[in-house]
Structures are given as C-alpha cells and as structure tokens.
C-alpha cells in the first residue's frame, strides 16, 4: 500500500473557495471603479439590497457534478430550451417535468464539480430554478453561475424536499420552517451583477451608464 504522511510545512491558512470568489467580485469592483464596492457614487444599489427569494426546495446531496446537471450529449444544442428539458436528468429523470418556476435547490458540499460547461448553471436557470443553496460550491460553477445570473448562496442548511425556503441574499440568511441559517453574505457588487441578469448584461448596462 502507498504510504502517506502529512506535513504542514507552512501555511497561511486556506480560505473557503466561495468566500474567495465572493471577495473576488469585490476586488473586481475595486479594480474597475477604484473604490470599494457600493461606494461608487454613480451606482445605486437601492434595489439590489433586498433580493429576497422564496421557493419550494429540491434537496440533493454532496458533489452534484455538472454531468448530472446537464449530460454532455445535450451540449451540442443551440436551442437553450433543450438544456432545461434535460436538467438534473442523471439524478432525477422526472426533475425537468416537475420543477416549477421559482423552485430552488438545496444541496451539500462541492455543488457543480467537474466540467467548466456554463450550460450547467444555465440549464438550472432556464428550468426556473431561482437560487442554489449549498454547503459549498465548486470554483468554476460558482463563477459561471454569477456570470449568467443564477443566484446562489453558500449556507449549511437542513431541509426536507418540498419545504419552503426563504433566501435573503443581501443579508446572507436562509430561513426554512422557522429555522434561520446564516450563510455567506453576498457583496453589493455581486448583487448588482445578479440583478442585471449576469456579467454580459451588467457590462452592457455599465456601458450605457458610461462607466466603462
């Protein structure tokens, strides 16, 4: 058998990946505007500060990968509705026919691991999923979801299938059946991208506002 010994040589502490991604967006705001996010006087965050999502929960476990979210055989399509028709097929073939607009997903750790296919968060969004709540997310999926405007929040939530879940993205709070969970709060700049419907729309709006 392989021998393994672990030695921490020097470590400055490894931070949660999603904290890192969230912070990245703040940093991007800083780079673009030269100020901390939300403090740019030309940007109004008033509407984005109260993103509330309320929906019925679909519950999945750990390591939900991009192949079960949308299998490779459907990726050739240009018809994006086809993605929604096959979303989560690998885990629950009846999902796409039963999911209702506004439903949300509650999952365990490492949600969206595997491929870099942006079609994965896109398929969930097109199927009507309003938010993904997971204990943690895989790095590329997290970035892709923000870029295409699918809200997500990192929170360790106990939840039964079909329960009503309320997510307050701005406060980083999730409420299920009277139980309140504190998740990772999204910075205002990230809320702005989500509010605009993703990075492409956000960039377009910035152009219209003469910010870039």
């Amino acid at each position: 058998m392989i021998k393994q010994r672990s030695k921490i040589r020097m470590s400055s502490g490894i931070t949660s990946p999603n904290f890192i991604e969230v912070t990245l967006y703040s940093a991007l705001a800083f780079i673009l505007f030269g100020q901390a996010p939300g403090r740019e006087r030309n940007i109004k965050y008033a509407s984005s500060l109260c993103i509330m999502i309320r929906g019925r929960a679909w519950v999945f476990g750990d390591d939900v990968d991009t192949d079960v979210i949308i299998p490779g055989k459907y990726l050739r399509t240009k018809d994006l509705r086809e993605l929604a028709e096959h979303v989560m097929e690998g885990l629950d073939p009846s999902f796409s026919s039963r999911v209702q607009p506004g439903d949300l997903i509650v999952a365990g750790k490492n949600f969206g691991c595997g491929s870099s296919r942006e079609q994965a968060p896109l398929a969930l969004k097109l199927a009507g999923i309003s938010c993904v709540v997971a204990r943690s997310f895989a790095r590329i999926f997290y970035r892709n979801a923000i870029n295409i405007g699918l809200p997500l929040i990192e929170a360790d939530v106990r939840c039964e299938p079909g329960e009503i879940v309320e997510v307050d993205l701005a406060q980083g709070k999730v409420v299920v059946g009277g139980r309140e969970y504190t998740g990772r709060k999204l910075p205002d700049f990230l809320m702005e991208i989500l509010n605009d419907g993703g990075l492409v729309a956000h960039r377009r709006k910035q152009r219209e506002r003469g910010l870039v």
């Binding site: 392989i2 021998k3 393994q4 010994r5 030695k7 921490i8 020097m10 400055s12």
Partner: peptide, 14 residues
C-alpha cells in the same frame, strides 16, 4: 516560498 506540503511514497504502490 510559502506552501502546504503532503507526501506520498510510490515504491509499493499498486
């Protein structure tokens, strides 16, 4: 440089 390190020995790896 600053990094974390883990070791494996493969002499007897199957």
């Amino acid at each position: 440089a600053i990094f974390t390190e883990r070791h494996w020995d493969v002499n007897d790896l199957e």
